[in-house]
Design a protein around this nucleic acid. Structure first.
Lengths: 330, 330
DNA sequence: TTGTACGCGTTATCAG
DNA sequence: CTGATAACGCGTACAA
């Protein structure tokens, strides 16, 4: 920077000003400085700027598993807004090991990041609360209502309800549910929506028709197998993830039964392969990319102190009707 | 830091030393310092350290599309080693827009990152070469031989050959190939391997059996449709990606033909859904996570100047035999 | 409108 | 083994 100042015949302060507040520098001087910058191919040292400003223009995204398409889609949305607004995205993979997040928390204390977006951490409430009180944080897409922190979530109750409603409308009465791991709110809510739909439809919830899975293909397969082993198997299943829905369908097929003719299936997520799978999957599509964008936008507001109160944004899932639930394609 | 020094009754220099080179500090002093650090809950300001040391312990990963499972698996491997070695991973999504990488290059010049791993950028050779001469860079999983830079790649020629060989061994003589976009080396190499296998088997390459796709499901579908419209369709197809293989199979099925009975299919990548798809996909599995780990390991060596010459690591893909090519499961 | 001078919090050097 | 001190490169009161 001093080289630039020398070449332009001004002080380093003027160079700095030209870069930070060009309007406070006389047009003529500004030109001289820019010319010197070009001539020397000068780039400011961001490290020094960061130290001076105590900000990094970097945000941390804590994700359980980047290889999971649901998360990578959200990260895609975050990244889009981050780029647009001049922020860098630091990736923190926890590999589902909660302890790892404590390493990332240190980044805050060391001022290495200006804010943080937490994707589905099973962080204990008090820890998260303390952190949220002190630093800009946004939680998505699964957040507990017990913590005061900004969130971007899906209306999982309504989504579960609509998925189940769809099956009810198709005439099904014995509808099973294969849930996600019930330690996370989304799973609980989807289950609740499922139950609400049944009750509001005027029927009774049969708890033997509810199985807990863990979002994976194999857990869907096994849960469905268990359901098929009962004396009166269901005629339809609502699964809390597309992967589990595919597992369930594989199980149904392995018994020589057909989807949707014998058993109708609705999934959740609308992953890429839900339209490649046979039968193509009826599913609830989450606007993951949008949610990622929103999370980043909200975070920036908090970083800039534009939003003092915590905010909650709730998105609706869209029912995508394909072959696995019958009717339309029959 | 000065507070800690005061409380411990030493100078800030000693506090710094205690943190950086504990062995150069007397046991007794060290204890005092640690006690003061604990008492004040002190954390070093990493920004200042970075400024002083001119290093960030951060590396940049430039990826065309983080939502693509092939890339996110590699990133997973990079992340694993990075964590272990105390590096942070900055994510640079280019969304397939080459220009965007120039923004990231500025990060180097601004000393915001210590090194960079480039996943499949279509960066012009001279630009990449200049960059590689000046900064620590590793390219993976697709690298042009024309640039002197460290690379971690797959032996795509051998992989294409083995995939095709497998089909030859099953008795197929009219084997088609649906390639990836031919502007990248991997695609060219897989195509070359396909041709080599046919020639070495004593047969002739029929160029009407070669179609260029772009790795996507739909391009596989269309390429296969074109192949099926010829007077003498192939009896087997080797696709340069699993997605294209699935598209091809969908096309075959849509004509009322069966896989593998009428046409055998081999894919590439071994994505998650290749074992869920029906029929399950025979495919070439790339050790993506391993390759990511290796890329990061090599990059760290370069950052530390342990490796002065550029290095090239080549991995082999593994043939995973499933239903789509016939025989085994018949 | 511009320059001077200080400080951000570390770490490296050198002397003791 | 430890302390004093000078950078690292920038941004910003304050003075001119």
């Amino acid at each position: 920077m001093s080289d630039v100042a020398k070449l332009a015949g001004v002080s380093t302060a003027t160079v700095s000003r030209t870069l930070q507040n060009p309007e406070t520098v006389k047009e003529e001087t500004r030109q001289k400085v820019f010319k010197a910058i070009k001539a020397l191919d000068y780039m400011p040292n961001v490290l020094a700027r960061q130290l001076r400003r105590m900000e990094t223009k970097t945000i941390l995204v804590v994700v359980p598993n980047i290889e999971n398409n649901v998360f990578s889609q959200i990260v895609g949305g975050i990244d889009a807004v981050a780029n647009e607004r001049g922020y860098k995205v630091l990736l923190g993979n926890t590999n589902h090991r909660v302890e790892k997040i404590y390493d990332y928390i240190d980044h805050f204390k060391q001022r290495q990041v200006d804010g943080m977006i937490v994707l589905l951490s099973n962080l204990p409430d008090p820890v998260l609360q303390d952190l949220a009180n002190e630093f800009p944080i946004v939680v998505t897409p699964d957040a507990k209502a017990t913590v005061e922190v900004s969130t971007v979530t899906l209306d999982n109750v309504e989504s579960g309800k609509r998925a189940t409603d769809h099956l009810l409308k198709l005439g099904h009465r014995r509808i099973a549910h294969i849930s996600g791991t019930l330690d996370i709110t989304s799973s609980q809510d989807r289950l609740q929506g499922y139950q609400q739909a049944i009750v509001e439809g005027g029927y009774f919830v049969d708890h033997t028709l509810i199985k807990e899975g863990d979002f994976t293909f194999s857990s869907g397969f096994e849960a469905m197998s268990a359901l098929l082993n009962t004396s009166v198997p269901p005629t339809a299943v609502f699964c809390a993830s597309d992967e589990m829905a595919m597992g369930a369908i594989k199980s149904i097929k392995s018994r020589g039964l057909k989807v949707p003719d014998d058993i109708a299936v609705v999934g959740f997520d609308n992953i890429k392969f839900s339209e490649v799978f046979e039968p193509t999957l009826t599913t609830m599509a989450q606007p993951l990319f949008q949610m990622g964008k929103k999370a980043m936008t909200v975070l920036i507001e908090r970083i800039n102190n534009e939003a003092l109160e915590e905010q909650h944004f709730i998105y609706q899932a869209e029912l995508i009707v394909r072959e696995s639930c019958g009717v339309i394609f029959r």
